[in-house]
Amino acid sequence: MAPIFYILKSKRIAAVALGTVLAATALTGCAAMRRTWQFQAEATSSPALQVKVESAAVSQRRLAMQLRLHNPGAQPITIQAENATLTLPDGQEFTSSVGGLQSEFAKGLANIGIGKAAPPVTIAPGESVPLEISISQGRRDLRRFATLQVRLPDLRIDGQPATLAPLVLRAPADAPLGEDI
């Protein structure tokens, strides 16, 4: 056993350095270890509203989207959307407040009479506004799915329920797929 000790002691620093280099290489070079992937999506629209995905960053537990809502009509419109849902190809669904945890917290406070929930957003004719969606969960690895669907189930335009086709997020071609990864 003694020779093993001496080998380990003399090589300890080298081993730590080698391990660090390997870890750094793996972190930066291996697709399976890439923490965040940018998914792509086509725009979707209703007669009164166009929705474009500017960014969809998908990490293991979180989807963070930057949307741009555009009013193509000749009249101003007001938009209300409190919740967003994320649906996996196998049907599992996760729900979050539009705007993420901060919005959820504000809504919770408003429900007990502290502060106010976010007011409706008004979009002038031909103008657009940004909208952030953040959905977190701890059960599935979101990076490993070829497609993800995002909906705004309680979207209201000028106070009326509006139906909008789901946004279909597609993984980049070089992203490793399958939850065994």
């Binding site: 730590v16 391990g19 870890a23 793996a26 291996c30 697709a31 399976a32 270890m33 490793p176 065994d180």
Partner: peptide, 18 residues
């Protein structure tokens, strides 16, 4: 650190232990 493909590794340091 997760290595992918259901593998992970860890380094532990404490009280003269590596």
């Amino acid at each position: 650190v997760g290595l992918g493909y259901r593998w992970d590794t860890s380094l532990r340091v404490g009280n003269g232990i590596y």
